[in-house]
Amino acid sequence: MSSDDDHVYLSLAEGHADDARWAFGTGFEDPLHGVDTTLPEGVDAAELTALCLALADDALVAAQRLAQWITLAPELEEEVALANIGLDLLGQARLLYARAGQAEGAGRDEDALAYFRDPAEFRNVILAELPNGDFAHSMVKLLLLSSWRLAQLTRLAEHPDPVLAAVARKGVSELTYHRDHAAQWTVRLGDGTEESARRMDAALAELWPYRSELYAAAAETQDEVEAVLAQVLDTARLAAPAATPVSMGRGREGQHTEHLAELLAELQSVARADPEATW
């Protein structure tokens, strides 16, 4: 290791009075530290809490699934890309949990909301919690989730709550990169080899029905998302699966698959093992 490297690692470990931290563990400084968090008149606190919580849960659970690709992705650049996308979502989740906690007014911070709620209290859509299949499966999932989230955030950028609006506006730039990434992989794999196209078809067949839950949760996004998906599939020479069940998933009501419990058990294990610990 060169002396330059030594310096980099030493500087990471340097103690700061303000306890600078990296993106892990509990006890972070409030991500909305120093932001004017007054609730504007005319914004319903309960509605804002529910909205922020749902958006944060989608992001946290999706970020955890993306993180599970680390060390397993097909190439190093892709691993870095998936970690980056997950990190963007985790950042959005932190701000949204903090905002949800403020709007709720019950003294719960981002850690309480992320680490100390049970599966039935989570409001993420089912699509976000489904286990990672092969890479094609994860790209179809990312395409569906990012297209939908981008359409939501585009609209929420005009939300009367200035904090949610600011998080949404920033998120639009980030989600644009996520959706492009998934769309480009969909084209590469769909219009690739016989095997890659077969895997994309299989992933579409499994995941396509979960769109209904996305549109049930945010009906205003449907036309935009469907137009995006049609454009991607057309370019990828993939066919949308035929008629699918009308109702698929009620994650927004707290009805989840067993996969969420498993995911949360891992995500929450250290915080729950010692709730007083800061790590």
Binding site: A17, A20, E29, Q92, V167
Partner: peptide, 22 residues
């Protein structure tokens, strides 16, 4: 001092804040 994050999840924001205070 007023800071704005680059990306929402940028872990360097806490580091920047600490360096600025120091």
């Amino acid at each position: 001092a007023v800071l704005t994050p680059t990306y929402t999840g940028c872990p360097a924001l806490a580091e920047m804040r600490a360096d600025l205070v120091a």
